[in-house]
Each structure stands twice: as C-alpha cells, then as structure tokens.
Amino acid sequence: MLADIRLVAAKDLRIEWRSRVTLSQVVPFALLVLVLFGFALDANRPVLDAATSGLYWVTVLFVGVMSVQRATAIETTDGARRALLLAGVEPAAVFLGKAVAVALQLLFVEVVLVGGVIVLFDASIESLPLLTATCLVASVGIAAAGTLLGALVAGVRARETVLPILLLPVLAPVLIGATRAFDDALGTVAVDGWAWLGLLAGFGAINTVLGALAYGVLLEET
C-alpha cells in the first residue's frame, strides 16, 4: 500500500516536474492574486495588515482549486484513469498518492506565498513552528477534499466550473481555521492558534478517510 502511494505520488509529481505547470503558471498566478489584493486594499495599510492571513489563505484556496483541476486533468486525458484501474493499484492508494502529490505542490506554493506576504504585505513571523504546522495540516485537508471532488467531476464536461462550486464551500472550515492559526503565527490577532490546528486536523482526517473509502466507487462507476 505504502509503495503504491509513493508510486502514484511520484508519477504525478514527475508529470508536474516535466510540464512545469506549477512553476510557470500556478506560482505566478498565486503571486498575482496577492498583488491584486494589495491593489485592492493598499490605500489602507492597517486593513491590509489585519487581513494578511485571510488573504493568504484565500489565495491558497484558489491555488488548491487550480492544482486539483490539474491533477484531475492528468487522469482524464488519454483514458489514463482506466489504465490506472487496470494497473491493479488499490483505489485507496491511488487516492492517497494523488492527494500527497497535490499537498506537496500546495506546500511549495505556500512557502513562496509566505515570502510574498513578508515582502509585499510587510508581515513578520512570530511563531515558525505554528506557521509550518498550519501549512502542513491545512494542505492535507485541502488536498484530500480536492482530490475526492476532483475525481467526482472528472468524467463530466462542465468540470472546470463545477469543481469550485463544490470545493470552496467544503473548504470553508480550512479557511476559517488556517486564517485564525496564521493570525497567531504572524502575531496580528491574539488567539490560540494551536487550538485551531485541532480543527484543521479533524477536517483533514475526515476527508482523507472519506476519500480513501469513496475513491474506488468513483473510479469504477464514473
């Protein structure tokens, strides 16, 4: 099982590395969103300071939608999904492998974005462990929910528009929890960020279990 997960994750990451979509499109897009937020709010510096963690995570959610769409497209072109089924890899392993790949890409973008908010929004890191833990746990939740819903809409024509409608409301707790934890980690609001990590972990756990259970049904039937 672990070997299969690693195999699928490595496959997705290799495709990503060779096509350079994350590097050449997703990262610039994420920075662009930050710049746009800056344009929208910069006239009012205190507002931008107070909203930094929220803007950061809204950007990450957009990136999450993009990454999931990309991960889904890899499987739908050339009937790769069917090949994956025929390969005899356990569907739960396929799900976990793909989720790991999406999570790693998200983490990469998140690191770049942290640099972005430090430079552009003048943010300062008060607690690096909390910041790191939040990014890790939130990425797992986004990747798990995204991979499941990505597979769900994989076979349909309108998938580009349906995916955000499905995914963004589901990710509402991640936005709330991660923003609060970041408020603490960046020292903008005095809250207990570690308590919010528990909620993010719960979200990640539920979606990982749901995804591992449902992925097989989706692969076979849709």
């Binding site: 769900l152 589901v170 509402a172 707790p173 909620l199 539920i206 749901l210 049904v217």
Partner: peptide, 19 residues
Amino acid sequence: IVGVMAAAILPIVNRSVEW
C-alpha cells in the same frame, strides 16, 4: 458522495464558526 460529504463536514463547519 457529495451528500455524505456535506453531512460529514457540517459539524466541523459548525464548530469552526462557533469558535
């Protein structure tokens, strides 16, 4: 699956908003 997911996520949404 969406129906089950909504039902599973809802308690978390509720918690998160409450906190």
